[in-house]
């Protein structure tokens, strides 16, 4: 009897220990998040001044200067990525949702899944071989293309899954009113799914805005304004990297400031996406 009682106490203790361990795991995982956010805020905020947002980087060794070209460059790169990636991704997703049961559809879906798992640095090499080598120069186009390829699988799958969630009753109502199939899909079904798709796109943009590796050998870097999209262009993540590994104190300071800007943007997009999802669910 005693044996059972003590094993019983032991089991209770194990149960409590495991619960505590799980809580501990959650805390342990979140500590780095808060540390990083704290450091970026504290170290970055000092570097955020008017010059940071408006000036070009000063030559090596000189103090001061800013990251205006990096900010604009990032906007341009992300813009290009959206231009290439969103229409293609959404329409491919529409195809998969509407006609995706065929063998071809399954191949496409498989390809999108494969693409989702490819490391971004490899995508950089791909675009380098495809675009940079033939054109013999680094360019914003190449960078935008690389980012578009990274965005593509996410946008495609999100569109497909959200379209599939739209109730068939809506489609039938539209068809019953004499609206053609294709119009029904685009104007009715897609529009209903649009908020969710937009949320997915926001998250994809947030991800792509922070990508560095593929840009290293596609859009490269530029200490000045890029005169066209056919030239190498600066970007926030690349700037952060370059400055962080440099030996200059001043550049470190600017790296933190740039990181603060980048993280703020990414955080904002993520929070906004979450809030939008919650509001949609609540209003249903």
């Amino acid at each position: 009897m005693n044996g059972i009682r003590s094993s019983y106490v032991y089991r209770r203790a194990v149960d409590r220990a495991v619960r505590a361990a799980c809580v501990l795991a959650a805390i342990v995982a979140l500590v780095p998040l808060f540390l990083v956010l704290y450091y970026v805020t504290v170290r970055g905020i000092g570097g955020l001044n008017w010059a940071f947002f408006t000036e070009l980087p000063k030559p090596v060794g000189e103090a001061g200067g800013g990251a205006a070209n990096a900010i604009v460059g990032s906007i341009q790169l992300v813009g290009l990525a959206c231009l290439f990636g969103i229409p293609l991704g959404v329409l491919a997703g529409v195809f998969l949702a509407e006609f995706g049961q065929s063998f071809f559809g399954r191949m496409v879906r498989f390809a999108a899944d494969v693409m989702a798992g490819v490391p971004s640095v490899t995508i950089g090499i791909f675009i380098y071989a495809l675009v940079v080598l033939p054109t013999k120069q680094f360019s914003a186009y190449a960078g935008g293309l690389a980012l578009a390829v990274i965005m593509l699988p996410t946008v495609t799958r999100t569109t497909e899954e959200l379209l599939k969630l739209v109730p068939e009753a809506l489609r039938e109502a539209a068809l019953g009113l004499g609206v053609p199939q294709w119009r029904t899909t685009l104007w009715v079904m897609l529009r209903t799914a649009a908020p969710g798709v937009a949320t997915g796109i926001m998250l994809a943009v947030a991800r792509v805005a922070g990508e560095t590796a593929p840009l290293l050998f596609t859009s490269f870097n530029n200490r000045f304004w890029a005169r066209g999209l056919n030239e190498p262009i600066s970007s926030l993540p690349v700037q952060i990297y370059t400055y962080a590994v440099s030996p200059y104190e001043d550049w470190h300071r600017q790296a933190w400031a740039a990181a603060l800007v980048l993280v703020s943007l990414v955080l904002f997009l993520n929070v906004a996406a979450r809030v939008l999802v919650r509001n949609r669910v609540r209003s249903r």
Binding site: P32, V36, T212
Partner: peptide, 26 residues
Amino acid sequence: RDPLSFLVELLAAVPSVVYGLWGIFA
């Protein structure tokens, strides 16, 4: 549940280069 899972997702949202920056100096 929701806030916690959101925070864990944020861990993935922080760009790799920012982790690197923090890593170098902290």
